[in-house]
């Protein structure tokens, strides 16, 4: 997996694709050394949660009512961005098959830190009703770091909103360092991902 100079081997790529992708390893980013500045930015992050518009399972249907007049998540600074580059929250909507997991990892790695993951539904915790399915992963936190779980099948939009409040509380307290955890334990995560995703035709880290 690793070259001598600590870059990725990118074994999954075809030889002609090698030049198109970056093979550098990500590095963890420490918070600002001045505590007040970091707290200030954490407050900003908590009040401007941009969701990645990628419905990864049946739970994605719960995101739509969240934006309507009834629940109006917009007033809490939550809005949907259609590109991973600009979004900071990834809502995993319930079960994720192995095929979806590959796309989840690609999108998650393209998001810019600090990034947060909200796992929706029991399926992300221990598989839920898909506990014996041959193509559904059972524990999401083996593949990407998760900040807040919302259990239920399906959780109501109110539960989702309360999950967002919990996420806000954790961000303000500075407890959400999922991006750093991912980078620090990257080899463990990559090992788990490659054990499940047999057709790995993408770079080892999607910059």
């Amino acid at each position: 997996m690793k070259n001598e100079d600590n870059t990725f081997a990118n074994n999954g790529l075809l030889p002609e694709e090698m030049d198109l992708f970056c093979n550098a390893r990500p590095v963890p980013y420490e918070p600002y050394s001045i505590e007040v500045v970091e707290k200030f930015f954490n407050w900003m992050r908590a009040n401007s949660l941009w969701i990645m518009a990628f419905g990864t399972g049946c739970g994605a249907i719960e995101l739509n009512p969240l934006m309507t007049s009834r629940f109006d998540a917009n007033r809490y600074g939550i809005q949907v961005r259609p590109t991973p580059r600009q979004s900071s929250v990834f809502v995993i909507g319930g079960y994720s098959s192995v095929k979806t997991l590959k796309r989840i990892i690609r999108s998650y790695e393209q998001m810019q830190g600090p990034k947060f993951v909200l796992a929706l539904g029991i399926c992300t915790i221990n598989g839920g009703m898909y506990w014996d399915s041959y193509n559904t992963i059972k524990r999401l936190d083996h593949y990407i770091p998760v900040d807040v779980y919302i259990t239920g099948c399906m959780p109501r939009p109110e539960a989702l909103l309360s999950g967002f409040f919990e996420l806000k509380r954790k961000i303000k307290a500075g407890e959400c360092d999922g991006a750093n955890r991912y980078v620090k334990n990257l080899d463990w995560y990559k090992d788990n991902q490659k054990r499940v995703i047999k057709k790995w035709d993408m770079p080892d880290y999607n910059w």
Binding site: F41, M44, S48, R75, G77, Q86, P114
Partner: peptide
């Protein structure tokens, strides 16, 4: 209810404060 009036400022500052 809609966004608070200072929301655009927060969005800009948040993007500015991204770590990567």
């Amino acid at each position: 209810v809609g966004i608070p009036l200072y929301q655009p400022f927060i969005d800009i500052m948040k993007n500015f404060g991204n770590r990567t």
